[in-house]
Design a protein around this nucleic acid. Structure first.
Lengths: 144, 144
DNA sequence: TAATATACTACCAATTTAGTAGGAATAGCC
DNA sequence: GGCTATTCCTACTAAATTGGTAGTATATTA
């Protein structure tokens, strides 16, 4: 059970944007450099984040990306879901009809618990929480 | 973020063994049939479970598999780990040296929380818990 | 119009997943 | 001993996923 780089890179990019939320559009190239992510790959991730309504883009010279909402309005589960997809511990968790046993399957119940535990953590954390924490620990902006 | 069939099949096989813990060796073919798993594939999974010390095998006619320990001594995290591998939400969670920021990285902290949440659920559930639950709900043995 | 950005489409190599295939070794039973 | 049932072992493979790269089109500013 592993997180994809999509999600990890995406969260870091979002956090970089959150740090710079008040400084106007931030260019992809800058984020890519600071976060050690291939610019071309990050481009794809930004497209996903954009279509999920989490960032807005400004094209052309002096363009870049900005968060679509306040950092305290963006929860990690949103970022996670659009990049990583749903937390599907098992097919039967998403789809009740997948198996005839779903109604009272003991194993399914565990997978549901696992999913819920993950969601709880992600849902309870906003980008703001993370930038606050970073500041508190005196990290320079680029070290997110 | 998805569970592999390895893990899902493996847990079901283990639970089937737990249900039949007192009836002597259970043959792979029977488990495969009852659980709708390719026998040849399950064979590989049982090899993993065996080398992890979770099941024992008896070769030859009338052979089969039995749990290596009491159902209440086998926790799901053990089964999970040997089949799914460690819960590596991010490389830096396992390996402190992976990134220069690990010491106080806010993102890393979230991934650690996620991992812990998963482990807590799995660690708190034994095979016995699951078979009890199944019985409580009056499921026939084969419907695990 | 030149420079700077994002947007879009297509492609690709490596890895992982979820199996299949075939036979060797072992044990019980007649 | 010989037959049968069963696990054990090794190798192969098709499909999907991952983590990119490449090239071009489009928009914006100066």
């Amino acid at each position: 059970m592993k997180l994809s780089t999509r999600t990890r890179y995406g969260v870091r990019a979002m956090l970089d944007l959150a740090e710079n939320a008040k400084k106007g559009p931030l260019q992809l190239k800058i984020i890519a450099q600071r976060q050690d992510i291939s610019a071309k790959y990050l481009e794809q991730l930004m497209a996903i984040l954009k279509s999920a309504g989490l960032v807005r883009s400004i094209r052309g010279a002096k363009g870049g990306y900005v968060l679509a909402k306040d950092p305290n309005q963006i929860r990690l589960n949103q970022v996670f879901h659009c990049l990583e997809g749903p937390v599907t511990t098992a097919e039967c968790v998403e789809n009740e009809d997948y198996c005839r046993r779903t109604a009272d399957c003991a194993v399914r119940h565990v997978w549901i618990q696992v999913r819920q535990a993950i969601e709880d953590v992600l849902q309870s954390t906003t980008l703001q929480d993370l930038t606050d924490k970073a500041k508190e620990q005196g990290m320079p902006d680029y070290q997110i």
